[in-house]
Amino acid sequence: MVAKRIIPCLDVKDGRTVKGINFEQLRDVGSPVELGKFYAREGADELVYLDISASAEGRRTFTSLVEQISHEINIPFTVGGGISSLDDASRLLNAGADKITLNTAAVADPALIDRIATRYGRQFVVIAIDARLEEDGIWHVTTHGGRRSTDLELFSWAREAESRGAGEILFTSMNHDGTRQGYPCEAFARLSEEVSVPIIASGGAGSVDDIVRVLTEGRADAALAASIFHYGEISIRDLKRQLSDKNIKVAL
Protein backbone atom coordinates (compact mmCIF):
# COMPACT_ATOMS: atom_id res chain seq x y z
CA MET A 1 0.00 0.00 0.00
CA VAL A 2 1.06 3.56 -0.62
CA ALA A 3 3.13 5.19 2.14
CA LYS A 4 2.02 8.19 4.19
CA ARG A 5 3.80 11.31 2.99
CA ILE A 6 5.69 14.03 4.85
CA ILE A 7 5.70 17.31 2.99
CA PRO A 8 7.60 20.40 4.08
CA CYS A 9 6.02 23.65 2.95
CA LEU A 10 8.18 26.57 1.90
CA ASP A 11 6.67 30.05 1.72
CA VAL A 12 8.43 32.16 -0.88
CA LYS A 13 8.42 35.93 -1.13
CA ASP A 14 10.34 37.68 -3.91
CA GLY A 15 12.42 34.58 -4.50
CA ARG A 16 13.33 33.95 -0.85
CA THR A 17 11.92 31.44 1.64
CA VAL A 18 9.97 32.80 4.58
CA LYS A 19 7.69 31.26 7.19
CA GLY A 20 4.48 32.81 8.35
CA ILE A 21 3.36 32.34 11.91
CA ASN A 22 -0.41 32.53 11.53
CA PHE A 23 0.35 34.11 8.13
CA GLU A 24 1.30 37.39 9.86
CA GLN A 25 4.88 37.52 11.13
CA LEU A 26 7.42 36.52 8.52
CA ARG A 27 11.03 35.50 8.95
CA ASP A 28 13.51 34.78 6.19
CA VAL A 29 14.80 31.23 6.36
CA GLY A 30 16.84 30.93 3.18
CA SER A 31 17.14 29.95 -0.45
CA PRO A 32 14.15 27.98 -1.83
CA VAL A 33 16.23 25.71 -4.07
CA GLU A 34 18.86 24.94 -1.44
CA LEU A 35 16.29 24.38 1.28
CA GLY A 36 14.28 22.13 -1.08
CA LYS A 37 17.34 20.07 -1.95
CA PHE A 38 18.19 19.77 1.72
CA TYR A 39 14.70 18.49 2.53
CA ALA A 40 14.80 16.06 -0.42
CA ARG A 41 18.07 14.63 0.92
CA GLU A 42 16.52 14.43 4.38
CA GLY A 43 13.73 12.21 3.03
CA ALA A 44 10.91 14.62 2.23
CA ASP A 45 8.34 12.85 0.04
CA GLU A 46 7.31 15.99 -1.81
CA LEU A 47 7.74 19.73 -1.48
CA VAL A 48 5.20 22.52 -1.55
CA TYR A 49 6.24 26.05 -2.51
CA LEU A 50 3.77 28.84 -1.81
CA ASP A 51 4.34 32.20 -3.47
CA ILE A 52 3.29 34.97 -1.12
CA SER A 53 4.72 37.79 -3.22
CA ALA A 54 2.26 40.64 -3.62
CA SER A 55 3.84 42.23 -6.69
CA ALA A 56 3.91 41.31 -10.39
CA GLU A 57 7.70 41.39 -10.18
CA GLY A 58 7.59 38.87 -7.34
CA ARG A 59 5.37 36.60 -9.47
CA ARG A 60 7.86 36.65 -12.35
CA THR A 61 10.68 35.84 -9.95
CA PHE A 62 8.63 32.90 -8.68
CA THR A 63 8.10 31.45 -12.18
CA SER A 64 11.83 31.44 -12.89
CA LEU A 65 12.38 29.95 -9.46
CA VAL A 66 9.98 27.10 -10.38
CA GLU A 67 12.13 26.43 -13.47
CA GLN A 68 15.23 26.28 -11.30
CA ILE A 69 13.54 23.94 -8.80
CA SER A 70 12.41 21.55 -11.53
CA HIS A 71 15.94 21.49 -12.92
CA GLU A 72 17.53 20.58 -9.65
CA ILE A 73 15.02 18.59 -7.60
CA ASN A 74 14.15 14.96 -8.36
CA ILE A 75 11.02 14.55 -6.22
CA PRO A 76 7.52 15.92 -6.89
CA PHE A 77 6.77 19.51 -6.01
CA THR A 78 3.61 21.54 -5.83
CA VAL A 79 3.37 25.29 -6.26
CA GLY A 80 0.67 27.66 -5.15
CA GLY A 81 -0.18 31.21 -4.26
CA GLY A 82 -2.13 33.62 -6.41
CA ILE A 83 -3.02 31.17 -9.19
CA SER A 84 -6.25 32.50 -10.64
CA SER A 85 -6.51 31.37 -14.25
CA LEU A 86 -5.79 28.56 -16.67
CA ASP A 87 -2.97 30.74 -18.02
CA ASP A 88 -1.32 30.93 -14.58
CA ALA A 89 -1.58 27.14 -14.31
CA SER A 90 -0.13 26.64 -17.80
CA ARG A 91 2.77 28.99 -17.05
CA LEU A 92 3.68 26.99 -13.92
CA LEU A 93 3.23 23.62 -15.65
CA ASN A 94 5.53 24.76 -18.43
CA ALA A 95 8.03 25.93 -15.83
CA GLY A 96 8.07 22.33 -14.54
CA ALA A 97 5.67 22.24 -11.58
CA ASP A 98 4.15 18.79 -10.93
CA LYS A 99 1.03 20.14 -9.24
CA ILE A 100 -0.57 23.43 -8.36
CA THR A 101 -2.73 24.40 -5.40
CA LEU A 102 -5.79 26.56 -5.84
CA ASN A 103 -7.49 28.21 -2.92
CA THR A 104 -9.22 31.61 -3.14
CA ALA A 105 -9.54 31.50 -6.94
CA ALA A 106 -11.32 28.14 -6.84
CA VAL A 107 -13.86 29.48 -4.33
CA ALA A 108 -14.47 32.55 -6.50
CA ASP A 109 -14.72 30.51 -9.72
CA PRO A 110 -15.23 26.78 -9.05
CA ALA A 111 -15.29 26.03 -12.81
CA LEU A 112 -11.59 26.94 -12.84
CA ILE A 113 -10.99 23.51 -11.27
CA ASP A 114 -12.77 21.83 -14.21
CA ARG A 115 -10.84 23.85 -16.77
CA ILE A 116 -7.41 23.06 -15.33
CA ALA A 117 -8.17 19.40 -14.55
CA THR A 118 -9.63 18.81 -18.02
CA ARG A 119 -6.54 20.26 -19.65
CA TYR A 120 -3.79 18.85 -17.46
CA GLY A 121 -5.35 16.01 -15.48
CA ARG A 122 -6.62 15.60 -11.96
CA GLN A 123 -3.16 14.75 -10.63
CA PHE A 124 -2.10 18.35 -11.37
CA VAL A 125 -4.78 19.99 -9.20
CA VAL A 126 -4.58 20.23 -5.41
CA ILE A 127 -7.42 22.16 -3.81
CA ALA A 128 -6.34 23.95 -0.65
CA ILE A 129 -9.13 24.68 1.81
CA ASP A 130 -8.69 27.00 4.78
CA ALA A 131 -11.64 26.57 7.11
CA ARG A 132 -12.56 27.80 10.55
CA LEU A 133 -14.82 26.04 13.04
CA GLU A 134 -17.27 28.72 14.17
CA GLU A 135 -19.46 28.80 17.25
CA ASP A 136 -22.35 27.45 15.17
CA GLY A 137 -20.41 24.17 15.00
CA ILE A 138 -19.87 24.49 11.26
CA TRP A 139 -16.54 24.57 9.45
CA HIS A 140 -16.73 27.73 7.35
CA VAL A 141 -14.43 27.98 4.36
CA THR A 142 -12.29 31.13 4.39
CA THR A 143 -10.25 32.78 1.66
CA HIS A 144 -7.41 35.27 1.39
CA GLY A 145 -5.31 33.42 3.94
CA GLY A 146 -8.14 33.16 6.46
CA ARG A 147 -9.05 36.85 6.41
CA ARG A 148 -12.40 36.47 4.65
CA SER A 149 -15.30 34.19 5.51
CA THR A 150 -17.48 32.59 2.86
CA ASP A 151 -20.86 30.85 2.84
CA LEU A 152 -19.22 27.57 1.91
CA GLU A 153 -19.04 24.68 4.33
CA LEU A 154 -15.90 22.54 4.41
CA PHE A 155 -17.27 19.09 3.60
CA SER A 156 -19.66 20.10 0.83
CA TRP A 157 -16.98 22.27 -0.75
CA ALA A 158 -14.49 19.37 -0.61
CA ARG A 159 -17.02 17.10 -2.34
CA GLU A 160 -17.68 19.70 -5.00
CA ALA A 161 -13.94 20.25 -5.55
CA GLU A 162 -13.46 16.50 -5.98
CA SER A 163 -16.32 16.18 -8.44
CA ARG A 164 -14.92 19.08 -10.46
CA GLY A 165 -11.49 17.48 -10.76
CA ALA A 166 -9.39 17.96 -7.62
CA GLY A 167 -6.74 15.24 -7.31
CA GLU A 168 -5.99 15.98 -3.66
CA ILE A 169 -7.42 18.12 -0.87
CA LEU A 170 -5.10 20.11 1.38
CA PHE A 171 -7.05 21.15 4.47
CA THR A 172 -5.86 23.74 6.98
CA SER A 173 -7.83 24.49 10.13
CA MET A 174 -7.59 28.20 10.81
CA ASN A 175 -8.36 27.44 14.45
CA HIS A 176 -5.19 25.35 14.67
CA ASP A 177 -2.81 26.87 12.14
CA GLY A 178 0.24 28.33 13.81
CA THR A 179 -0.86 27.24 17.29
CA ARG A 180 1.27 24.07 17.34
CA GLN A 181 -1.48 22.37 19.37
CA GLY A 182 -2.15 19.57 16.89
CA TYR A 183 -4.71 18.96 14.19
CA PRO A 184 -8.52 18.59 14.41
CA CYS A 185 -8.42 14.82 13.83
CA GLU A 186 -12.20 14.31 13.81
CA ALA A 187 -12.65 16.79 10.99
CA PHE A 188 -9.86 15.12 9.05
CA ALA A 189 -11.34 11.65 9.54
CA ARG A 190 -14.73 12.87 8.34
CA LEU A 191 -13.12 14.51 5.30
CA SER A 192 -11.56 11.15 4.43
CA GLU A 193 -15.02 9.61 4.43
CA GLU A 194 -16.59 12.38 2.41
CA VAL A 195 -14.13 12.29 -0.51
CA SER A 196 -12.04 9.55 -2.05
CA VAL A 197 -9.04 11.64 -3.15
CA PRO A 198 -6.00 11.83 -0.83
CA ILE A 199 -6.11 14.33 2.05
CA ILE A 200 -3.10 16.39 3.07
CA ALA A 201 -3.22 17.69 6.65
CA SER A 202 -1.78 21.12 7.24
CA GLY A 203 -1.48 23.65 10.03
CA GLY A 204 -1.03 22.83 13.68
CA ALA A 205 1.81 20.33 14.00
CA GLY A 206 3.76 20.96 17.18
CA SER A 207 5.09 17.49 17.86
CA VAL A 208 5.65 14.04 16.38
CA ASP A 209 2.57 12.82 18.26
CA ASP A 210 0.40 15.39 16.49
CA ILE A 211 1.54 14.02 13.15
CA VAL A 212 1.06 10.41 14.28
CA ARG A 213 -2.49 11.21 15.34
CA VAL A 214 -3.54 12.97 12.14
CA LEU A 215 -2.16 10.11 10.02
CA THR A 216 -3.90 7.44 12.13
CA GLU A 217 -7.03 8.79 13.90
CA GLY A 218 -7.31 11.59 11.33
CA ARG A 219 -6.76 9.12 8.46
CA ALA A 220 -4.86 11.76 6.50
CA ASP A 221 -2.64 10.55 3.67
CA ALA A 222 0.04 13.15 4.13
CA ALA A 223 1.14 15.77 6.62
CA LEU A 224 2.41 19.14 5.56
CA ALA A 225 4.37 21.32 7.93
CA ALA A 226 6.68 24.27 7.87
CA SER A 227 8.07 25.66 11.09
CA ILE A 228 8.86 22.41 12.87
CA PHE A 229 11.16 21.58 9.96
CA HIS A 230 12.43 25.07 9.17
CA TYR A 231 13.66 25.69 12.66
CA GLY A 232 15.25 22.27 12.88
CA GLU A 233 13.20 21.09 15.86
CA ILE A 234 12.86 17.71 14.28
CA SER A 235 14.51 16.41 11.14
CA ILE A 236 12.35 14.78 8.50
CA ARG A 237 14.51 11.68 8.72
CA ASP A 238 13.96 11.33 12.49
CA LEU A 239 10.27 12.02 12.12
CA LYS A 240 9.89 9.29 9.48
CA ARG A 241 11.85 6.82 11.61
CA GLN A 242 9.56 7.51 14.54
CA LEU A 243 6.47 7.09 12.35
CA SER A 244 7.87 3.82 11.07
CA ASP A 245 8.49 2.67 14.66
CA LYS A 246 4.77 3.26 15.27
CA ASN A 247 3.90 1.01 12.32
CA ILE A 248 2.95 3.85 10.02
CA LYS A 249 4.16 3.03 6.54
CA VAL A 250 6.55 5.69 5.26
CA ALA A 251 9.09 5.64 2.45
CA LEU A 252 12.50 5.39 4.10
Binding site: M1, V2, A3, R5, E168, E193, S196, A222, A251
Partner: peptide, 13 residues
Protein backbone atom coordinates in the same frame (compact mmCIF):
# COMPACT_ATOMS: atom_id res chain seq x y z
CA UNK B 1 -11.96 3.77 -4.09
CA UNK B 2 -12.40 2.23 -0.62
CA UNK B 3 -12.03 3.63 2.91
CA UNK B 4 -8.28 3.23 2.97
CA UNK B 5 -7.76 3.17 -0.76
CA UNK B 6 -7.70 6.69 -2.07
CA UNK B 7 -7.95 7.42 -5.77
CA UNK B 8 -5.80 8.70 -7.46
CA UNK B 9 -3.15 6.36 -6.04
CA UNK B 10 -0.77 9.16 -5.07
CA UNK B 11 2.59 8.84 -3.41
CA UNK B 12 5.47 6.47 -2.77
CA UNK B 13 4.87 2.74 -2.99
Amino acid sequence: AAPDLKVPHTGWN
